[in-house]
């Protein structure tokens, strides 16, 4: 079990993450979502022991990141967006070096390398020099290096960035394998990927956690207040009317062919019965009212723009 409690980290006098708390159970894959600058990478680096927290605690199976950092580092595997690799080494030599850096004996490393090579689908590449590998294979070497010491928590920062569609499918398979018996924390900008890979989501915004739960739970939180409306009328007039309406918290225009107009609308509560007749009364012909179908993207936009609290 990984427990993050009230984690805060300052750069100078500026808080980058503030009071972030969440738990990850063994066997669970959790996605860390957030816009650029939300604090995802800082959170991951604190968890990996690269940065020290300004306050708060991170415990892995009861071991604190500050109290026993070396013990914690043996229990954590961290793969940053650009895998750290010595390009002049072969895959096997690099994995052996990484394992020994993590405190493994030569015998353990020798026994473990074939296992992680299989886990990361690197068979046949063991003796290849890393500088000659493609980006996709380098990512896989990064994954193998991350789990060489069999950590309890695996942290993957943007694991599929820069991969082609075939490599993404492969990497998805690799990540799912990693989740067996381990806690996995993944950050990604590709929401569809998070949706397909993760059991649960933690959403950061401005350095704070603004939501946590399964995709279904987060959808329910927003489902009552966010609707997509398509009307007959001018787009500009419709937007102006929405912005002037006190029942509307936010509206985001959508592109639809004339003579129609459309927008995603956040309401102040579940007041659809009162709001929809007002559209018709304002002279717009209501064509369609629906709940957004691209759920994760809508959740993400909704949570980060409204700054909803968990």
């Amino acid at each position: 079990m990984i427990e993050v409690r009230e984690l805060t980290r300052y750069y100078g006098h500026t808080p980058v993450i503030e009071g972030v708390s969440f738990k990850i159970a063994r066997g669970e894959i959790v996605g860390l979502l957030g816009l650029n600058g939300a604090g995802k990478t800082t959170t991951m680096r604190v968890l990996a022991g690269v940065l020290s927290p300004s306050s708060g605690s991170v415990t892995v199976d009861g071991t604190d990141v500050v109290g026993a950092p070396d013990d914690l580092k043996r229990r954590i595997g961290f793969l940053p967006e650009t895998p750290p690799q010595y390009e002049d080494m072969t895959v096997a030599a690099f994995l052996a070096h990484a394992g020994k850096l993590k405190g493994m004996s030569s015998a353990d490393v020798k026994r473990r390398i074939p296992e992680v090579v299989a886990q990361a689908h690197l068979e046949g590449r063991e003796n290849q020099v890393i500088s000659t590998l493609s980006h996709g294979y380098r990512k896989r070497v990064g994954v193998a290096q991350t789990v060489i010491h069999n950590p309890s928590l695996v942290i993957l920062d943007e694991p599929i960035s820069g991969l082609d569609p075939v490599q993404i499918v492969e990497m998805r398979r690799v990540i799912r394998n990693l989740g067996e018996g381990r806690a996995v924390l993944i950050s990604s900008h590709i929401l569809n990927e998070i949706s397909q890979t993760c059991d649960r989501l933690v959403v950061l915004h401005g350095g704070r956690k603004i939501a946590e739960g399964t995709e279904a739970e987060l959808t329910r939180r927003l489902g009552d207040t966010r609707i997509v409306i398509t009307v007959r009328g001018g787009q500009q007039e419709f937007e102006a009317w929405l912005q002037a309406n006190p029942r509307v918290e936010h509206c985001f225009p959508r592109v639809v062919p004339a003579p129609f107009a459309s927008a995603i609308v956040d309401l102040h509560g579940d007041i659809r019965e009162q709001f929809i007749p007002e559209i018709a009364a304002a002279g717009f012909g209501v064509r369609l009212v629906e709940v957004p179908d691209d759920e994760l993207e809508e959740i993400f936009l909704g949570l980060t723009r409204t700054g909803a609290t968990a």
Partner: peptide, 14 residues
């Protein structure tokens, strides 16, 4: 510059 410092920073090494 090559990012390999992270390997050392995440290892249980003083």
């Amino acid at each position: 510059t090559q990012g390999t410092q992270l390997l050392l920073d995440t290892a249980p090494i003083a």
